[in-house]
Design a protein around this nucleic acid. Structure first.
Lengths: 221, 221, 221, 221
DNA sequence: GATGAATGAGGGTTCATTCAT
DNA sequence: TATGAATGAACCCTCATTCAT
């Protein structure tokens, strides 16, 4: 399941199934994952249009036709990458917002989570792909909005409203515009793909500075 | 010069020259602009790779071959769009930073400038294209960094440093990371292309809220 | 291997292997040959630049894309035609020069060989193509010089030197200029493509007359 | 009139015409010649198909459209080059055959004529073009056969027949195949375009050796 | 299921030819 | 007459998708 994911092919191994079909199913699943990983590489490197199924197949160690056994077409494969990688991550973020900890601590954790679990993994590439290819893939944008953004924003807004009520913050701008919290993270991803060679960006410091402005100064972790 | 430009064909009319060659030059310039505008439409709608020169020609009312009289190839045409539209805009921004007005006023003007001169024009599309296609066009990213970003950031940093010295702001985070100022604008552009149909974003309000957080509350202009 | 070749698809039939892959390999080879033959037709008829891959594909009974499974591009296809047809022929000629027979007999055999194996086959077209397209294909000319001409001339010179030593001929002009031996053959090929409809040329007689002048009269073989 | 020709634009100047139209006609003729010369350059360098009218126009110092004022199309221009350059040369050759001099002397003169007036001038390029492009231009081949070859061969045959009658030569092979006389010259032209960089050819020596074989030894001129 | 050879539509680019000026 | 901008047909090559093995 690409690199950013866990539990690879355990499901069938845990239960005592017929070894034959189980092994076959496992192999099929492994292939599917290999294809997804290879496809992400290629999509990231070249963009949707320029990425070649031939290269993905080669990279995944399968024949070109095999891809079509797992995905209807190039577009379906592309969308499935996003689906399979971003879905699992949402829960983690929702958990942070629901934890009974000070807002400032949440901010710190979100920064660390972003740096470690997004910027440091393939999820960075996924988000970049959503940004770069999304305009041409309405269904992808919709999926991402429905399954990721709306849920994350919803959790964030809830917690922020509580923060306003409790006096942790003095205005409701962030409730109205949670985008203001996420914006520097997005910009960091864009920047890294475009301008890092001219002017590298210390993402963690960028985000910390941002959180300090939003929620008040705090010593470095 | 696409839509965001002024003075169409005045230059030749002012001087008293042979009508023939002047009219021809004018028409050539008009065609060039028509091609640029049509190309921007197509690039915006489909992305660089999927945009067809055939469609651009049709939209511009010229033959396909005519495009090659004005631009070496598809890529040169693409880069020229960015060049011709963003270049002239940099000076305006630099002027704002150099004006002898309070930082807070500058912030307001930048918001208005962005809303009116970027978000309300084709420049929004240009920036979106830089974001979406830049990763595959190193030269484009370099041009944009060199001719736009570095100059704007340089002007901004200078003014911000003065603001720190004068006590207009109490920290130097924005000097280190001018990206923090621009981030919501970028996010607004991305958002508008991806999620506006699910959740429209009031860009002016977003940016104002952001400036309020960065530089302190202020009544609406 | 075009028409000048033998043994069609026997190789795989002889051994007892999986019928599938063998048949596939055979078919692939057959297609390759069909493409080469069709391409030679088109190149001969129109010249390199004007020959269309589309026509070759149609003539070979394959799709246009199939050509690119076997040859990198139009030029590679062109060079491969020359390579595959002329290569095998060199050895035959070399053999004649090395045989322990009188020079005059060699001359007769060379005439017959040329008439039967060059002028009567596609090799005539190949040589014509080398003459007509070579100036624009330095690599082709080089290949032909290296793999064909220099080897044939080398063999010829060696035998001619021996002939001088033995007194079979009284001068060394042909050692210095083996081109003098080949010239009428080349002219015959050129003539046949340009002027045969105005004045047909009896190639065998032409070459015999030439050999008679070079090596002395002889009754017809 | 290309380089190999004389008397450029004298015709009109000699007679006392209206200066206006005369100058105009002269200029037109000069342009025509410039175009022919430029076209020969380009055709020689790239072959008929790959030669670009654009380059010819540039090289001739005229606009592209001007070419069409003098020649119907690319093909007509090509044929006209051959026509205008080879025509004048035929008479010279015919004269040599008719002169009252020994056959052996004629042979020497033909060699010198070829080396100086063909191999050392643009006529070499013309002949190469006839060889390389002729197969695709039946009308060109016909013109060349009718206006050049048949006349030259006719003159040569006549003289050779006389030579046989007089006992200057003992066989009639050359009467039947005048090509045998010309062959090394043709081969020299082909060779120079294909293989000179691998193995340069001393054309004069080649032709002298050839004539020595055909007509008997003779000291170098 | 897995393969990869085969397909053929599609698009960027070139360039001979035309024609308004 | 001369120009050269404009045209658009033509063609090479790519690559997503199919399907016989």
């Amino acid at each position: 399941m690409l690199k950013a994911n866990r539990k690879p092919k355990a499901a069938s191994a845990r239960r005592g199934r017929r070894p034959g079909s189980g092994a076959r199913a496992e192999k099929a699943a492994a292939r599917r994952e290999a294809i997804l990983a290879a496809a992400l590489d290629e999509f990231s490197a070249r963009g949707f249009a320029a990425a070649r199924l031939d290269d993905m197949a080669k990279r995944a160690g399968v024949a070109k036709g095999t891809i079509y056994l797992h995905f209807r077409d190039k577009e379906a494969l592309f969308q499935e990458i996003v689906r399979s990688l971003m879905g699992p991550f949402v829960g983690t973020l929702e958990g942070v917002f629901k934890a009974d900890i000070p807002l400032r601590t949440i901010a710190d954790q979100v920064v660390e989570l972003f740096v470690r679990e997004v910027f440091g993994t393939r999820r960075k590439d996924i988000i970049r792909l959503i940004i770069t290819e999304g305009p041409r893939f309405p269904k992808l944008a919709e999926f991402y909005y429905r399954e990721v953004l709306s849920r994350v924003f919803s959790g964030a807004r809830e917690r922020l409203r509580r923060a306003v009520d409790r006096g942790e913050i003095s205005h409701d701008s962030l409730v109205r515009f949670p985008q203001l919290i996420a914006a520097p993270g997005m910009v960091a991803i864009i920047w890294s793909g475009l301008f890092d060679r001219f002017e590298p960006l210390d993402v963690r410091e960028l985000l910390r500075a941002h959180m300090n402005i939003l929620f008040g100064e705090r010593k470095t972790a």
